[in-house]
Amino acid sequence: MTAAIAESRPAPLGDGPAIVVRDLRMRYGTTDVLHGVEFTARRGEVLALLGPNGAGKTTTIEILEGFRIRSAGEVSVLGTDPAHGDERWRARMGIVLQSWRDHGKWRVRDLLHHLGQYYVPYSTPERTRPADTDALVAAVGLGEQADKKISTLSGGQRRRLDVAIGIVGRPELLFLDEPTAGFDPQARREFHALILDLAKTEETTIVLTTHDLGEAEKLADRILMLAGGRIVADGTADELARQVSARAEVRWSRNGQHFVESVEDPTGFVRHLFAEHGEAIGDLEVRRASLEDTYMAMVVSHEATGPDAAVAGWTGAVQ
């Protein structure tokens, strides 16, 4: 790990983790917004930074992008400290933000082609840069809009163009900040398909931020849940769900009498129940707390009572 951080020249493709973050801290004035965030992203992994607004997702991603200078901690992105990343390093990543409204007078294909040209000097035998403009326009579903002015695109089309620009340099690492904010369900579904396809075919490491658990579950290999500037959970959607649902509520009846108990090992408990009472058991019901219920409870608490209570609430639910 330490070697990966210390290394300052760009690591060759496929060598070492894409991102290593250790004890990352960010402070604005006297307010701490990140308290020692730690995680690693493998090459080719799709990682979601999930959390309510104000949890520190955007700050974290902007530090990784090299757009914001951290207060403390060690960060390595594609083998380089983002605070000292050069243009060669920049050429290996793509960035998609939610607030872009630029280049309204350009036509879709022209802008994509023009911006792609900046990557020509960074083409390598393993990864020829940039991507073919027309193929990319088609891949993001803007074939019919290729000759339209960008100012005439809908919100969803605009964001797909942003993704196309983000990947025109065939990045090894792609950042997506709240990529589907303000989308309708249809646009959201199409966008998810596009991202999944990209992760599969280009072997791009993707880091996305979202406050939507469903989106994180759908897109990410691994979810990092942030609250109050800390990572409170790190794992696949299944692992997170299991952490949350470590306890389950078991309801049953015996001889017409109803029982309910909260247990840590529902399977073992039920096995035991049947072993002891056999045929007498009826109306069996095992209910695990869903990840969604627990996440929603944390989001509500984050907004109502602040990050510390939310973190405490989440930790309590998990243990």
């Binding site: 992008e65 757009f67 243009e87 050429a91 933000l97 872009w100 900046y118």
Partner: peptide, 8 residues
């Protein structure tokens, strides 16, 4: 910002 996100 777009210009900043692109090499050179």
């Amino acid at each position: 910002l777009r210009a900043k996100a692109i090499p050179n």
